[in-house]
Simulated scan of single mutants.
Amino acid sequence: MLQTAAAIIGSSKRLVVLTGAGCSVDAGVPDFRSPSGWWRQINPQTVATVKALEENYELFHAFYSARIRHLKQIVPHKGHEVLSRWEREGRIQLIATQNVDGLHQLAGNVQVKELHGSIRSFRCQRCGRPAEEEAFLAGEACQCGGRLRPNVVLFGEGMDLPQQAWNAARQAIEAADAVLVIGTSLQVSPANQLPYMTKGKLLLINKEETGSEHRFDCCLQGGAEELLLQLDGLFDYQGKRADTTQT
């Protein structure tokens, strides 16, 4: 299967990548859907919500402050660097990501669309005025008195994705000749419908089975970092496809 995936990527002229939480796990970013959970074992679906923002801001603020401070210790892993190199080589047209951590950009990718926003920027919930990270972490209020929040899509806002990012991702996937999905359970709507908008080849990298494997042309089970490094090892330094006829 690794050789098949390499052959598809190597012959692709319009490759689009869709990433989820599993793409960042190898860098040390917790996966909310893991059995152990994280941050005092609190279910994010009860904290990362509009209801919590409006009715339990102390908990909401503590949750996101912990995530932001933890993220300061995180750097992109070698798989992120592979995706950055593939973009520079002209392999990747666009990365659409469900992640809010900004690791693709830190690794050097430029053509990135954040479907669920970014935890690295902030605004007022009431008036929408931009805010600084320091003000949010300090628990300050907006000039209008409103509460500050990260620019992420909260649970309950799932259908209200950033339209520019969504439209760009959809258009790129519709025009793609291959879509590589990395580290997502394909359970979060509407982003989980994006892969099936392509007429090109579909590839999946994920640690666990998603139940949607039958819809893909090639599935690789394992960690994002390890498998991206293995795939990258099948290509030479000029960005040309190496011999993929081996078994």
Rank of each mutant, 00 (worst) to 15 (best):
residue 214 H to S: 14
residue 123 R to D: 06
residue 182 I to S: 04
residue 195 P to T: 08
residue 162 P to D: 06
residue 89 E to M: 15
residue 180 L to E: 01
residue 117 G to H: 07
residue 190 P to A: 05
residue 171 Q to P: 00
residue 176 A to P: 00
residue 116 H to E: 05
residue 114 E to G: 03
residue 116 H to K: 05
residue 106 L to V: 11
residue 161 L to A: 02
residue 161 L to W: 06
residue 194 L to W: 05
residue 190 P to I: 10
residue 206 N to G: 06
residue 222 G to C: 05
residue 194 L to P: 02
residue 148 L to N: 09
residue 124 C to R: 12
residue 116 H to I: 02
residue 170 R to Q: 13
residue 114 E to W: 06
residue 125 Q to M: 12
residue 211 G to D: 07
residue 126 R to G: 09
residue 110 V to I: 14
residue 189 S to K: 12
residue 156 G to H: 07
residue 106 L to K: 14
residue 192 N to H: 05
residue 186 L to H: 04
residue 103 L to G: 07
residue 130 P to F: 11
residue 147 R to K: 14
residue 139 G to F: 04
residue 218 C to W: 00
residue 150 P to S: 08
residue 205 I to N: 01
residue 138 A to L: 10
residue 135 A to K: 15
residue 173 I to C: 04
residue 166 W to K: 07
residue 155 F to P: 06
residue 122 F to L: 07
residue 211 G to N: 10
residue 105 Q to R: 13
residue 200 G to K: 00
residue 208 E to T: 14
residue 206 N to W: 03
residue 152 V to Q: 03
residue 96 A to R: 01
residue 217 D to S: 08
residue 111 Q to C: 10
residue 90 G to P: 04
residue 159 M to G: 12
residue 93 Q to Y: 04
residue 218 C to R: 04
residue 192 N to Y: 02
residue 178 A to W: 01
residue 91 R to W: 10
residue 143 Q to T: 14
residue 169 A to N: 01
residue 120 R to V: 00
residue 186 L to A: 05
residue 206 N to V: 10
residue 127 C to K: 11
residue 100 V to P: 05
residue 92 I to T: 01
residue 220 L to A: 03
residue 108 G to Y: 02
residue 153 V to C: 00
residue 100 V to S: 06
residue 92 I to L: 02
residue 137 L to C: 02
residue 167 N to P: 08
residue 183 G to Q: 04
residue 170 R to Y: 13
residue 89 E to N: 13
residue 131 A to N: 07
residue 208 E to F: 08
residue 134 E to Q: 15
residue 102 G to L: 06
residue 183 G to S: 06
residue 126 R to L: 12
residue 162 P to Q: 02
residue 191 A to N: 09
residue 152 V to C: 04
residue 95 I to W: 02
residue 178 A to S: 07
residue 140 E to M: 13
residue 146 G to N: 11
residue 127 C to M: 09
residue 218 C to E: 02
residue 115 L to E: 02
residue 214 H to C: 11
residue 208 E to K: 11
residue 177 D to E: 00
residue 112 V to I: 10
residue 194 L to Y: 02
residue 164 Q to G: 13
residue 207 K to V: 15
residue 102 G to V: 00
residue 109 N to R: 08
